[in-house]
Every structure is written in C-alpha cells, then in structure tokens.
Simulated assay, not measured.
Amino acid sequence: MANFYSILLTLVTLAAGLIWLYDAKMKRPARVALIQQAEQEANKTLSAEERERLAPQGTIAEFAQSVFPILFVILILRSFLYEPFRIPSASMMPTMLAGDFVLVEKFSYGVRDPLFRSELFATGLPQRGDVAVFKYPVNPQVDFIKRIVALPGDRIIYRNKTLYIEPACETRNESCPPLQVIKQTIQPQDEIYFNRTTPLQRFTEQLGDVEHEILVDPSVASRAAFYYQQPGTAMDEWVVPEGHYFMMGDNRDNSEDSRYWGFVPYDHLVGRATLIWMSLEFERGADSWVPQWFPSWIPSGVRWHRLGTVE
C-alpha cells in the first residue's frame, strides 16, 4: 500500500502529540503543585532527581514527549519536502537501476496533505523530461516511477520505436509547432545492458530541456496490438487530455507505461525524482562476499559511482 506509511506516520505523530498535550494540560499542573508544596514544607529547592521521585511523569507520557518532536520533523519532511523511494525494477534503465534509492521532491507539483492528498496550494507544473513518481492509475495503492514524455494537449506517436510529439497549441494555425521527431543518437557501449542474453542498444534523447539516455531491445517487435486504445486516434497515437500526462520508461521495451494503460491524472503525481542517494547491488557472483544461502534482500555491494542527481 503506497500511502500506508504516510497514514501510519501521521496517526502515530498525532497520537504522540495528543498524549503529550493531555499530560501537559491535565497531569503536569498537579505534579508541579505537589513539588511546590514539598519545597515549601522542606524550605528548600528539590533536586531534579527528588522531583522525579516525588512526582514522576507517566512512562507513556514521557515517551510521547520524547518522540513527538522527532516524528513531527520526519512527518513534515516526508509529507511536504522530500521522500525516499526504492527503484524495484529495470524499467528506467539506464537512468535508474533496480536497487537505486532516489529522493523525491514532494513540493515540485503542488503541496498536498499526507492523508487525503488534496492539494493545499500549487507550486509548479510538471515539465517534459521530468522523472516523476506517481500513483499507478490502474491501482493507486502502488507507486510507479517513469519519465514525463507528453503534457496536456500534446499529440504523441510511438511508431517503429521512434517517438513523435506535436506540442499542444491553443489555436491550430501556422504558428503552432509541427509534429516533431524526437531524435535518437546512438551511444558507445561503455557499459552494456542486457535483456536476458540480448545486448540492448543505447541512445540519447532530448525531451524539452532534458537530455537523457534510453535503451532499445532490437530483438523485440512492435507491441502496438497491446497499446491502450484511445477513441478517435490510431493504434500507436494518443492525444493527452487536459490535466493528464503521458509517461514512458527509459528502458523502452521493458516498461509498463502509458502506452499500455493510458494517462496519469495530475492529482496522482507524487513528486519529481531529483537525487540517487544510495545504490545497492543484489546480484551475487562466484566472488561475492555474501553467501548464496543468504536472503535475497541482503545487498552484495554498493554502486558508489551511481550516486548523484537524476538526469
């Protein structure tokens, strides 16, 4: 459940705060009065240890007072500023690998409350080329991460593994931009990626102001028959509705994205991926220090060279 931890953190923080507040308003005055009376009778100021022994704070209230500030700071950071996500699959290779941990900027596309995800106020709009985390439209309880390829009103074609975009235009006249071929420039294979035994071709692509790399599997034929069919368009063509976005993975032939299930509503966006802050490797070769019988979730190494900003 994608929103489970946000809800749990909010409820636990609220509970700790209410317990602390109840103790401060209802219990603490009685403890203070008892200590003042004892000091008057003894005609001296009691030490902190004596005060605690005479009028101890309840264990639960003491724990709530200790953890509430920490939980509150974490809640603010996670809900409104930044949240860590783990990349579970290969759909965004080579930009992101399975085992990468990314930091997502939550306020990039509006500030939302952590429980109901209602927008509190707008802060910015998605841009073509952004790598974004969003609620999977087919099952909003699951988080997906893909690249924003097309914006509201754009016409997009993906044919013969080539991307075409006609940017949105309010008035269709001579000043409107024409259908553009998104040029792919093949890159040298300094680091080869595979789909099983097939080496993948590596290209650079320019989307808006963002230049990034994609992978294409030459052994995979067109899958247009499985594409999401939008009424009134060709099999491999889509027009992005208002308030929606078209997402694609950088590993073009190994990505379940908008080509297969349609568009992402604006209110499903979680944030923009900005930084790879950790990258763990889980593959175990013959020379791995991790025994083969160890659980698969135990990492076998850290890919330090991958740490940095997301392109």
Rank of each mutant, 00 (worst) to 15 (best):
A2P: 01
N3Y: 09
F4K: 07
A16Y: 02
A16E: 05
G17H: 02
L21G: 00
Y22R: 10
M26W: 00
R31I: 00
I35F: 02
Q36C: 01
Q37C: 01
A38K: 12
A38D: 09
E39I: 04
E49I: 00
E49P: 02
E50H: 00
R51S: 06
T59W: 01
A61V: 02
F63Q: 06
A64C: 08
S66L: 04
I70S: 01
V73Y: 01
I87F: 05
I87K: 02
S89N: 13
S89L: 04
P94C: 12
M96V: 06
D100S: 03
V102L: 03
F107E: 08
Y109H: 14
V111H: 07
V111L: 14
P114G: 13
R117P: 04
Q127R: 14
D130Y: 02
V133W: 05
F134Q: 11
F134Y: 15
K135T: 11
P140M: 05
P140K: 13
R155C: 06
L163D: 11
P167Q: 10
E170D: 13
E174L: 15
C176D: 14
C176L: 04
P177C: 09
V181A: 11
Q184Y: 05
Q187G: 01
P188A: 07
Q189R: 13
Y193W: 10
N195L: 05
L200K: 08
Q201F: 10
F203I: 01
E205A: 03
D209Y: 00
E211F: 00
S219T: 05
V220S: 10
V220W: 04
A221D: 14
F226E: 14
F226K: 14
Y227G: 08
Y228F: 14
G232F: 08
T233H: 12
V240I: 15
E242N: 14
G243P: 10
F246M: 12
N251C: 09
D253M: 07
S255V: 08
E256P: 00
D257W: 05
W277N: 04
P291K: 11
Q292M: 13
F294M: 15
F294G: 01
P295I: 03
S296H: 13
W297G: 07
I298F: 12
I298R: 07
G301E: 05
V302N: 08
R303P: 04
W304E: 00
H305A: 11
H305S: 12
H305N: 10
T309V: 00
